[in-house]
Amino acid sequence: MSALPTRLAPVPLRVLATTPETADSTTLVLESGAIQPGAPGQFNMLYPFGLGEAAISISADDAAARRLVHTVRGVGPVSAAIAALRPGDVLGVRGPFGVGWPMRQARGRTIVLVAGGIGLAPLRPVIHAVLRERAAYGRLLVFYGARTPRERLFVPELAGWEASADLEFVTTVDSGDANWGGHVGFVTALLAQARFDPARTIAMTCGPEIMMRAVANHLRERGMAAEDIHVSMERNMKCAAGLCGHCQFGPLFICKDGPVFPYGRIAELMTVREI
């Protein structure tokens, strides 16, 4: 009987390290235990004891180190409890679930990543994967939109990316501060200035749905095929295994058909209200 892969019970894993990212976001490094590392774009269901579960994407490609890395923004009771964990605490994990970013299709092509807010977390493993196997991919252009400079994730790592010749990384904020010497404005404005060959490019975007729609539409106007633009969706999730029905988005289950979808598959659904 137990041969059936139910994956409905969490595996308790120890928190090895925590890094505060912003006022409400934290990166957790966990031992990986019996949980498979997961591919960029996949997610785990995280369970702080007794409180409930939240679907959180994997935020680093650190399989070699046998570590699970998640970046959590504490916005609800469950995610806030996860973001408040300290090293030594134990967190329940089940997963990994879902269809991740199209890393195989990305090989040999220019990769455009557009992240908004916490949406950089699910895209960071893509950057790690490309940098680890740099020659296998074309140019890597990353556009990161944040609310303010203080609300950027992974700040020490961003500096390295900005300085690196291996990728073209730019941040833009909605609102700067006195010390901000970087870009101000919406990500599409930066994207509009970037030069790349739409026919040889694959794009991946993660952020608020309105941002992803604007980004995808801009890329379509630039001549990219809808199948080459990939977006990561979010909906209510309970089981993550296609059994509970909660995450349905039109005919799709975000948990098992996604969370990453080619834009062509969901462009029409994204414009339907309350779907």
Binding site: G50, L51, C244
Partner: peptide, 26 residues
């Protein structure tokens, strides 16, 4: 109709927690 939700409970001591699954409705 197959949809379900889950309910996480814990006892008063906070040492025992359970997850229950129950029918849900869209």
């Amino acid at each position: 109709c197959f949809c379900t939700t889950v309910e996480d409970t814990s006892d008063l001591s906070g040492d025992i927690a359970e997850r229950w699954r129950q029918w849900d409705s869209c």
